[in-house]
Amino acid sequence: MIEIQNVRKSFGSLEVLKGIDLTVNKGEVLTIIGGSGSGKSTLLTCINGLEPIDAGRILVDGTEVHAKSTNLNKLRSKLGIVFQQFNAFPHLTVLENVMLAPRKVLGLSKEKAEENAVKQLTHVGLGEKLGVYPTRMSGGQQQRMAIARALAMSPEYMLFDEVTSALDPQLVGEVLDTLRMLASEGMTMICVTHEMKFAREVSDRVAFFHKGVMAEIAAPEALFGAPKDPELQKFLAATH
């Protein structure tokens, strides 16, 4: 369970998160939508401790992310995250990309790490690309590799930050399919996305962020079918 309690966060004088309260249960798929600069990415990077917070707290399975005593590196192996930009390690093959962290962080043997990496890559449809360098692959393939790389750490939660936004339109589908597959397997996921159709299909709940505030959260039918917040109504009107 991820518990976000009254979290505030500023960059300089700009308050980006203005007291966010949100609980994500095991097995749940939560999508976050909202305009540019509303604080969606910042929230995700706070959840895995890449960014400090100014007030409130975030608990992952009861462990407080920003407590001094928390071993962040250990906690992060529970929390997979995939970003908008393709973050393939260009100097490593696809297989090596996926094997690196399990070997160095979890201390898996080469054989174990390789077996696991092959499994994850096959799962996202890249079983034929093991020896290829990522720069030779399409953006969609690189994003699927990034997903496999995160999954190889056996995370309990996956955070996705607009993983299809930098893709050519014809490549969006393959990545969304991968996310759908994970959702159907019961992975707990928080997805920041601009793909409304996708959000409607896979989400248990959808949250709408506006200027650092979670303005509305509801099941997709309710949020898309009968939006209450006026900003959300405007936002939905604009995305069609």
Binding site: L50, N73, R76, S77, F83, F89, M153
Partner: peptide, 9 residues
Amino acid sequence: RAGRSLGMT
């Protein structure tokens, strides 16, 4: 950042 988010020091 990608490395850190995978749990690397």
